[in-house]
Amino acid sequence: MRAMLPSAVLLAVVLGGCKPPEPAPQPVTTASMAEPPPAAQQDDAQQDDAQPAPPVAISQASFLGYGDMRLGETVEQARAAWGGELNGLPGQDSSCYYLTPKWVARPADFAFMIEDGRFVRYDVGTDKETAPGGGKVGMSATELQAMYGGALASAPHKYVEGGQYLSIDASGVAPSKLVFEVDAAGIVTAWRVGLLPQADYVEGCS
């Protein structure tokens, strides 16, 4: 049969009008259908694969406390929950003082208030921390009100003319309160979360 195959092919050519047989169509593959992306797109795709997006930072601030530290617990419990070094000592004439992590250069940026031997409040003056609900230093009062559904109560600032305090209670989550300090330009300069009455101390421990 193999010896007769060329003759059969020749006969088919003669009968077909001496036209050579058309080549068999090549199978279409996925690779042949898809156009390769431009070099720039390939580079971007490789960079995306090599450099995944960084994870979104999760705030440790809550109406209950900060991280594992819980408002109302003793200073010993708060120190243990923090797990790192905290600087600060009570004064001779006051039971209220602040503890700050050793990496804090300016106590006004981040500090824990201790009163009568208990952790009662924490103060934030930097945009590196996010308040419960999403508020931050640097936001406008208008942005805050929109973020908190217009539920922030307003009161005049005691020391900044044209400034204000915007605050909201934890509403059953905890016996605590969130207070934003807003300057005359309507920008948040600091915020704090604490038990009452300590959350309303406008001078801190002073």
Rank of each mutant, 00 (worst) to 15 (best):
G17N: 08
E22G: 13
A24I: 13
A24H: 14
P25C: 08
Q26D: 14
P27D: 04
S32E: 04
A34G: 15
P37D: 09
P38I: 15
A39V: 14
A40P: 04
A40T: 10
Q41F: 11
Q42R: 11
Q42L: 11
Q42P: 03
Q47K: 09
I58D: 03
S62R: 06
G67E: 09
L71H: 03
T74P: 01
E76H: 12
Q77H: 05
R79H: 06
A80C: 05
L89W: 13
Q92Y: 14
Q92S: 14
Y97L: 05
L99M: 09
T100E: 01
K102L: 12
P107F: 01
D109P: 03
F112I: 08
Y122H: 02
Y122N: 05
D123I: 07
D123K: 07
D123F: 09
T126W: 05
D127M: 13
K128W: 15
G133K: 00
G133W: 05
G134V: 01
S140G: 03
S140W: 03
S140D: 06
L144D: 00
M147A: 06
G149Q: 03
G150S: 04
G150W: 12
A153K: 15
S154H: 04
A155L: 00
P156W: 04
H157D: 10
K158W: 13
K158F: 12
G162K: 00
Q164N: 04
